[in-house]
């Protein structure tokens, strides 16, 4: 019975996925490039009011049109991508950091420490995180740092659970015991012996977290909780809401960029997952 499908189809799928993941990687490369050098590519100052007529449709002068204040949508997207990517990357980084610390501690020590940490993690998973993020940003002020922090502090439980289960299975392996007998300190065991071996699932999860953070940021901005000093894709969609009738391009293009980036991140995460563990296919 077990001779049937599993491993046979995997190789075929990986091959197909390689094309997809190559595409995803290319998109993400381009996005990173824009995030770093976007300012230099922008034809106009993204914050400058009145560089063109107000709510002008896409044209050679303004490739993606202009907004209600006569700002250039294309230039704003380049700048907005930078902010959105920055939020996504830093939030995912902090999330991963917290998740690894909590998960590694719980998984390495086990026992009561594990119990307590996992109960806390479960509670955090039940709390509706988007609502709490809104509250935090509304109370402490809508600036990029608060937004990043609010997203990160609410997203770590998933990472923690993944890291914990990896640690649980790795901590009793031979190479860990060998290092322990050789007199390695606890910190060395956790960070130099076990963690490198648990890195695969952590990286996959971090990839998906970047996309999740970008969507959360967009959601917060759309509710008016954006950093007004810093154009982001979510803020653009917030501004577009009142002009949907007269200027569809204000909504279409920023949203499409978010979708494309998140899509690429998800696809990349999927194929990384296949590479690490061929058995967990198709998710």
């Amino acid at each position: 019975m077990t001779l049937l499908s599993p491993s046979m189809r995997t190789s075929l799928r990986l091959l197909k996925k390689n094309k997809v993941s190559a595409g995803a990687t290319a998109v993400l490369g381009a996005v990173l490039f824009v995030a770093v050098f976007g300012a230099a590519l922008a034809p106009y100052n993204p914050g400058q009011v009145g560089v063109g007529p107000t709510t002008a449709a896409p044209s050679p002068a303004h490739l993606l049109g202009t907004d209600d204040l006569g700002r250039d949508v294309f230039s704003r997207i380049l700048a907005g991508t930078r902010a959105s990517v920055a939020v996504g990357l830093s939030a995912a980084m902090i999330t991963t950091l917290i998740g690894v610390l909590v998960g590694a501690t719980a998984g390495y020590f086990g026992g009561t420490i594990d119990d307590v940490l996992m109960r806390i993690t479960e509670i955090f998973q039940v709390i509706p995180r988007f609502f709490l993020a809104v509250l935090m940003v509304a109370f402490f002020g809508a600036n990029l740092l608060n937004i990043i922090f609010a997203i990160a502090i609410l997203s770590w439980p998933e990472t923690a659970r993944i890291v914990r289960s990896e640690f649980l299975s790795l901590r009793s392996r031979q190479f860990v015991s060998a290092a322990r007998i050789a007199g390695a300190s606890t910190a060395t065991l956790i960070f130099l012996e076990i963690l490198p071996n648990a890195l695969g699932p952590v990286v996959v999860n971090a990839t998906l977290q970047v996309g999740q953070a970008m969507i959360l940021e967009a959601g917060l901005s759309y509710l008016g909780l954006a950093d007004r000093n810093q154009v982001s894709l979510g803020l653009m969609l917030f501004e577009a809401q009142q002009f949907l009738r007269s200027a569809w391009w204000m909504s279409l293009f920023p949203g499409a960029v978010i979708t494309l980036v998140v899509l690429s991140l998800n696809l990349l995460g999927d194929s990384l997952n296949d590479l690490i563990d061929p058995r967990r296919r198709g998710r």
Binding site: A218, L237, R245, S251, T259, L263, N266
Partner: peptide, 22 residues
């Protein structure tokens, strides 16, 4: 489904509004 999964829901709402209502 993969594409639908990556879209911010409110952006899709804006597009629907633009096309079907406005």
């Amino acid at each position: 489904s993969i594409v639908g999964f990556a879209m911010p829901a409110f952006w899709l709402g804006q597009l629907m509004l633009i096309v079907f209502a406005l």
